[in-house]
Amino acid sequence: MGKDKRQAYWRANTALIRNLLIVWALVSLVFSILLVEQLNALRIGGLPLGFWMAQQGSILTFVVLIFIYAIQMDKLDRKYGIRK
């Protein structure tokens, strides 16, 4: 793999990681901590949304982010010809 291709691959990889970390930070910090009082005004299944996000929503989001990362990295690997 040439240097330009490696740099493009690395840029795409770090951009994906950055974007997923932004989502992770929004869910875990903003929705689960900073906006918990405002979200508690809404209810899901009888529980306040802020509580639900802190307990269940964050965990579900993290699991989804792992799958998104794996799928997107597989696409990047194929695009740039990285063999496993």
Score class of each variant (00 low, 15 high):
residue 2 G to N: 14
residue 2 G to R: 08
residue 5 K to T: 11
residue 6 R to A: 12
residue 6 R to P: 01
residue 6 R to Y: 07
residue 7 Q to K: 13
residue 7 Q to E: 14
residue 8 A to W: 02
residue 9 Y to K: 06
residue 10 W to T: 14
residue 11 R to V: 06
residue 12 A to V: 04
residue 12 A to S: 13
residue 12 A to I: 04
residue 13 N to V: 08
residue 14 T to K: 12
residue 16 L to F: 05
residue 18 R to H: 14
residue 21 L to T: 02
residue 23 V to G: 02
residue 24 W to T: 04
residue 24 W to Q: 08
residue 26 L to D: 08
residue 26 L to C: 13
residue 32 S to L: 00
residue 32 S to Y: 00
residue 33 I to G: 01
residue 34 L to A: 09
residue 36 V to I: 13
residue 38 Q to K: 11
residue 40 N to R: 08
residue 40 N to F: 02
residue 41 A to E: 13
residue 42 L to I: 03
residue 44 I to K: 03
residue 44 I to F: 11
residue 46 G to N: 07
residue 48 P to L: 00
residue 50 G to I: 01
residue 51 F to A: 14
residue 52 W to D: 05
residue 52 W to R: 02
residue 52 W to T: 09
residue 53 M to Q: 13
residue 54 A to E: 11
residue 57 G to H: 02
residue 58 S to D: 06
residue 58 S to A: 10
residue 58 S to F: 09
residue 59 I to P: 01
residue 60 L to E: 03
residue 62 F to R: 05
residue 62 F to M: 11
residue 63 V to I: 14
residue 63 V to T: 09
residue 65 L to K: 01
residue 69 Y to W: 04
residue 69 Y to A: 03
residue 69 Y to P: 00
residue 69 Y to M: 02
residue 70 A to F: 11
residue 72 Q to N: 08
residue 75 K to S: 05
residue 76 L to S: 07
residue 76 L to F: 15
residue 77 D to C: 14
residue 78 R to W: 13
residue 78 R to V: 14
residue 78 R to E: 15
residue 80 Y to W: 13
residue 82 I to S: 07
residue 82 I to K: 13
residue 83 R to V: 14
residue 84 K to C: 11
residue 84 K to D: 15
residue 84 K to G: 14
